[in-house]
Amino acid sequence: MDSLTLPSIFITLIVYIAAIKLAKRFPSPFTTPILTATAVIIVILSSLGISYYQYTPAKDWMTFMLGPATVALAVPMYKNQKIIKDKLKPAVWGLMIGTISTITSAVWLTKALGLSDRFQATSAVKAVTTPVAIEAAVLIGGNPPLAAAFVITAGIFGAVLGPIILSLVKITDPFSRGLGIGTVSHGIGTSQIMMEGPVQGAVSSLAMGAAAIITSIILPWIYPLIHF
């Protein structure tokens, strides 16, 4: 543990606590803690001249429990297993059609915006959780570190604007809301929609896992079909 590790952890914790307080005080998509905390920490580190490389040991300490925290999502899933069983058929259709449209729209939008092949292949994996995104990106000629950046951005975007967009298009059913967020914004979206209610959190966790599995299976054969 070097001299920057403890201060970096301290800064991150303080900013996180402050971000949560801010979100409670002024509830708005733009006070979503993942957005405000990330932005503030980047500004602090940059102004102190600390690079991400120097922040990495602190990051490794703090993300030690990310895997276990994700595993703990099994508890809300277990508690809501009845509703999941009842709505399994709509959920499977939603997941399949949704995953395909997320992948296709990303690839076509990248093409339409005049970005290169490398961006196109990487954009296809942006909706799923990082470890799967990295491996799936390699299979179709994408770039793993870039995939991680896309995944984080898609997660934050969905966490911040996802709930409000769903309300705008009158998707009010908690089950469907959770399923949509988990499918397009993985764990980051799940951590946010969990605050809306236990059903949303449980279904989002399920969707996150299912979308990752579906994407890694279908991507190698769907990508050549939609990529031109």
Partner: peptide, 25 residues
């Protein structure tokens, strides 16, 4: 460009996924 791509694709995927599920439910 990347933000536009990620944003629009996330919205499209989100609305189609949740919309299909709500409709079928």
């Amino acid at each position: 460009q990347l933000l536009l791509m990620i944003g629009f694709s996330t919205i499209i995927g989100l609305v189609i996924t949740a919309g299909t599920t709500q409709y079928l439910t």
